[in-house]
């Protein structure tokens, strides 16, 4: 990939990011989750978890942060499917190096948007929730877990976005994602769940992102409610790297196959189908 492509892709990402903060509906979608979660935090801030003496709100804030980071996967996947449907990808295909610059742009705009969303949630969250312990070492942990988490989840998002045939099919993705969030110890410590559920949760990046965020932002005593009473940094890195490798191996192959199949007729066909459904 040459400098021209990287620069064009970067420009594209910046333009898309700006659009997402100036276009009404997009602004709403940036604010909706963080605000909703802040409301949840507000109500959870007083209830405590069992006899541990820890507050649920305190436990949940870092977990929700981790969950939001993992949701970049969903938004990338949705945007890919949508923009395949409206012909944006085909336009990229008609341009030299267009697909590459499109993808660079997507990564820039999705991760930029994600970081903005995290800040929108984290800053007021720190004011609402008591009992967090964010020292300087913890910011470093927060950053490496976040960065690795994005590398682990975004390529998977690109793969999912390529395999779903329509934006409608994308809706189906929401179900497993919600299920994943439910079992990943985001709103309630995972150790309260049956052991077999814990095993399933530990296969996917959601749990580990949440754990990494908790390790960064909670006081050391909070480790008591985690599996094995440990922050398991090594395992966190291991699972996230495994997902990253899987995603980075799969994504180019799947994306190339998807791009090869794009044509004017396939775009028109999907549009006709979408119109017929709308009627």
């Amino acid at each position: 990939m040459n400098a021209v492509v990287l620069r064009a892709g970067w420009r594209r990402g910046v333009i898309e990011l700006r659009q997402s903060f100036t276009n009404g509906p997009d602004v709403v979608s940036h604010l909706l989750w963080p605000v909703l979660m802040l409301v949840v935090m507000y109500f959870l801030r007083e209830s405590s978890f069992g006899a541990s003496g820890l507050l649920l709100g305190t436990l949940a804030l870092p977990s929700v942060l981790g969950m939001n980071a993992a949701l970049g996967l969903v938004s990338l996947s949705q945007q890919l499917t949508y923009e395949r449907e409206d012909g944006t990808l085909l336009r990229a295909k008609a341009t030299p190096h267009g697909i590459q610059s499109y993808l660079v742009g997507k990564v820039v705009s999705v991760s930029g948007g994600l970081l903005a969303d995290l800040a929108i949630f984290l800053v007021p969250g720190l004011l609402i929730v008591k009992g967090l312990d964010p020292g300087s070492a913890s910011w470093a942990a927060l950053l490496w877990v976040l960065a690795l988490g994005m590398v682990a989840t975004l390529p998977i998002g690109a793969v999912l976005g390529s395999v779903f045939p329509s934006a409608r099919g994308q809706g189906l993705l929401q179900l497993p994602v919600i299920g994943m969030i439910a079992i990943s110890g985001i709103f309630y410590p995972i150790t309260a769940l049956p052991e077999w559920v814990q095993w399933i949760a530990q296969v996917f990046p959601f749990y580990w992102l949440g754990l990494g965020m908790r390790s960064a932002l909670l006081p050391d005593a909070a480790v008591a409610v985690e599996i094995g009473q440990s922050w398991r940094h090594l395992e966190t890195a291991g699972v996230l790297v495994a997902w990253a490798v899987l995603g980075l191996l799969l994504a180019p192959v799947v994306l190339r196959g998807m791009a090869r199949k794009e044509s004017g007729s396939s775009v028109a066909e999907r549009r006709d189908k979408a119109l017929r459904r709308a009627m």
């Binding site: 409206d86 944006t88 085909l90 336009r91 341009t95 030299p96 028109a268 549009r271």
Partner: peptide, 15 residues
């Protein structure tokens, strides 16, 4: 690709 220009029958991208 750079030597070929394309105008398809219908577009609605980049709205």
């Amino acid at each position: 690709r750079a030597r070929v220009g394309v105008v398809l029958q219908s577009w609605r991208d980049h709205g």
